[in-house]
Simulated assay, not measured.
Amino acid sequence: MTQKPVLYTCAASRGLRATWAAEEAGVEIDLKILPFPPRYLAPDYLEINPLGTVPLLIDGDARMTESCAIAHYLATKDGITDLAVAPGDTDYAEYCDYTYHADATITFPQTVYMRFAIFEKDKGWADAGHAYAKWFYKRLVKIEQRLQGRDFLCADRFTIADICVGYALILAKNVGLDDGIPAGLKAYRERLTGREAYKRAAEREEKGRAALPS
């Protein structure tokens, strides 16, 4: 029997992109929810992933640690699907661009904000964190302009690019960055989080978190 891909992640982390993609694609995964941060609270995980980061996908000999790449991989591992845009198809370039844009441009300032303004605010770096919040808001302009007159980012359908970008908007709501999100992007986020696959993914991760030892 073929072994299922194993996904190590923390609930509601960037790994949600991968859990969500698996649900959308109908790919069965063995989901392993870790306490956050795993490098401190699950030290044995470092033997599997020396970086100590999540997510980590293991599928046979394949080992992947980038959430957007994992999401794309899960949606295409058995062949191209409507969740991706194939080379030569309309919006292929845009699909690639927005999928990478999600982490490289949008999620990056969020993570710096979280470090300075939330996780290490007692060190007096809150002002730096709020500066990164403003940077994050400014970097939403490309997404906002792209979605004018569109429900989704690419090819007139929901794709992995929407999962990758949408997660950044979900994270913004979860960490106190929602005030600067334009109304149009909030409506886009509502469309995404209303999907049944998203609800299943979020519920599955939350159940995993609830089952962790206290």
Rank of each mutant, 00 (worst) to 15 (best):
Q3N: 14
K4E: 14
P5T: 04
L7S: 11
C10Y: 05
A12S: 10
A12H: 11
A12Y: 12
S13I: 00
A22I: 07
V27N: 01
E28S: 09
L31N: 06
I33Q: 11
L34P: 09
P35G: 07
Y40K: 15
A42G: 03
I48M: 04
N49Q: 02
P50H: 09
V54L: 08
P55V: 10
G60K: 10
G60E: 05
M64V: 08
E66D: 14
A69N: 07
H72R: 07
H72M: 04
Y73A: 02
I80N: 15
D82G: 08
A84S: 15
G88H: 06
Y92G: 01
A93I: 13
A93E: 15
D97S: 05
T99M: 09
T99W: 06
T99C: 10
D103N: 11
T107G: 00
T111R: 11
A117K: 08
I118A: 06
I118P: 10
D122N: 12
A126Y: 09
D127S: 13
A131T: 13
R139M: 11
L140N: 01
L140V: 03
K142C: 00
K142W: 09
R146S: 00
Q148G: 06
I160E: 02
A161V: 02
A161Q: 04
L171W: 11
L177Q: 02
D178L: 02
D179S: 15
G180A: 10
I181W: 08
I181M: 13
P182K: 10
P182Y: 10
G184I: 03
L185W: 06
K186S: 09
R189E: 08
E190W: 07
K199Q: 15
K199C: 08
R200E: 03
R204V: 01
R209T: 06
P213Q: 09
S214P: 05
